[in-house]
C-alpha cells in the first residue's frame, strides 16, 4: 500500500510537469501576449522595453524555465491589468471556488446516490426511467442557461434568493449563516446538475451490476435483513462512486467559469473569464496552472482513496 502511494506520487511528477509545459505553450501559441499590453501608438523601443520587463524577449524554452522556477516558488508574476501579484488574487479566489464546487459536488452526490440507487434497485421500473431521464437531462442541459432560468424564477420572479454575488461584504465577509448561504444556493444548485446526472448514472449501473452478483444472493441466503444486504451493496459500490465524485469535483473546480460568470461569483472561474477577455497572460497562466494542479492532485487523492477503500486493490 505504502509502496503504491509512493509510486503513484512519483508518477504524478511527470504529469504535473507536462501540465506546466502545456499551460505555458497554450498561452504562447494562442497569439502574441504583447498585443494586449502595448498601446497601438507605442514606439519600437517602448515595445522592446516592455518585452524585456516581462521576459518576452528570451527564447521560449528559457522563458518557460524562468516561469517554472518562479511558479514553483509561488511567484506567478504580476497581473498585466492591475500589476498586483497574481498569487494574491488567486489565493483570494480559490476558497470561493472550492466552496462553490465542493457544495455543488455534495448536492450532486446526495441526489445522485438517491436517484441512482433507486434506479439501480428498481431496474427497468418507473423509478428507473424517471431517474435515468433526470440523469440524461442533467448532463445535457447547458448549465449557464439553467443558471439564468433559475435566476429568473427564484431571484427575479419569486424574489426568494439573490441573483448574483456573495453578499454585501464580498468574499472577505463570508460566513456560514443564512444571510450568506442564500447567495450560494443558486450557483451551487446550477453547478450541481452535471455531477448529479453523472453520479446518478454511475450509481445506477454500479448498483445494478452488484445486485446481479452472486454474493448478494448468498447474503440473502444467510438470512440478512434487507437493510444489511443493502449496506453490503453500498460498501461494494463505494470505491467506484467515490472515484467518480472526486473527478467531478475536479471538473467543477475548472469548469465553473460560466456559472461563476453568470452569478458574479468571485472565484477562479470568474478570474479566468476576466483574464481571457483582457489577455492578462500572467493571470491566465497562474489560474490555469493552479486549476490543472488541483485536478492532478484530485486524481492522485481519488486513486489513493479508492485503493484504500477497496481491499481487492490494496495489495497490487
Amino acid at each position: 500500500m505504502l509502496v503504491y502511494i509512493l509510486l503513484r506520487l512519483l508518477y504524478t511528477i511527470p504529469i504535473a510537469l507536462g501540465v506546466t509545459v502545456f499551460v505555458f505553450a497554450l498561452i504562447h501559441l494562442s497569439g502574441d501576449p504583447m498585443s494586449a499590453i502595448v498601446a497601438p501608438d507605442a514606439t519600437a523601443e517602448m515595445v522592446e522595453q516592455l518585452k524585456k520587463s516581462y521576459g518576452f524577449d528570451q527564447p521560449l524554452p528559457i522563458q518557460y524555465l524562468l516561469w517554472l522556477t518562479k511558479a514553483l516558488q509561488g511567484d506567478f508574476g504580476n497581473s498585466i491589468v492591475n500589476s498586483r501579484p497574481v498569487l494574491d488574487t488567486l489565493l483570494a479566489a480559490v476558497p470561493n471556488t472550492l466552496m462553490l464546487a465542493g457544495v455543488a459536488t455534495l448536492i450532486g452526490f446526495a441526489f445522485g446516490c438517491i436517484l441512482g440507487g433507486l434506479a439501480g434497485y428498481y431496474q427497468g421500473g418507473i423509478v428507473d426511467k424517471i431517474a435515468t431521464g433526470f440523469g440524461i437531462a442533467g448532463v445535457s442541459i447547458p448549465h449557464y442557461w439553467l443558471g439564468m432560468v433559475l435566476v429568473i424564477i427564484f431571484a427575479v420572479e419569486l424574489r426568494w434568493l439573490p441573483a448574483t454575488g456573495m453578499g454585501a461584504g464580498g468574499s472577505d465577509a463570508w460566513q456560514w449563516d443564512w444571510e450568506h448561504i442564500r447567495f450560494l444556493i443558486l450557483p451551487a444548485v446550477t453547478l450541481s446538475v452535471i455531477p448529479c446526472g453523472i453520479i446518478t448514472r454511475t450509481v445506477r449501473s454500479t448498483v445494478a451490476e452488484i445486485l446481479n452478483q452472486e454474493f448478494v444472493q448468498a447474503l440473502r441466503a444467510k438470512g440478512l435483513w434487507h437493510g444489511q444486504v443493502m449496506r453490503h451493496v453500498a460498501r461494494n459500490a463505494a470505491p467506484t462512486v467515490l472515484a467518480v465524485m472526486g473527478l467531478q469535483l475536479g471538473y467543477l473546480l475548472g469548469g465553473s467559469i460560466l456559472v461563476e460568470t453568470v452569478f458574479n461569483w468571485p472565484g477562479t472561474g470568474y478570474l479566468l473569464n476576466d483574464a481571457i477577455f483582457r489577455r492578462d497572460v500572467p493571470m491566465l497562466q497562474g489560474t490555469i496552472l493552479l486549476l490543472a494542479m488541483f485536478f492532478v492532485a484530485l486524481n492522485l487523492i481519488v486513486d489513493i482513496v479508492q485503493t484504500w477503500v477497496d481491499p481487492r486493490m490494496r495489495r497490487s
Binding site: Q213, E214, Q217, A218, L219, R220, A221, G223, D310
Partner: peptide, 23 residues
C-alpha cells in the same frame, strides 16, 4: 429471513463469487 441461514442454509458453487469481496 430467520429461516434462511438459521434452519436451512446454502453453499454456493463458486466461493470466489459468493463471498462479499470487500468484507
Amino acid at each position: 429471513q430467520d429461516f434462511r441461514g438459521g434452519v436451512a442454509s446454502m453453499i454456493f458453487q463458486d466461493p470466489g463469487l459468493a463471498l462479499d469481496p470487500v468484507y
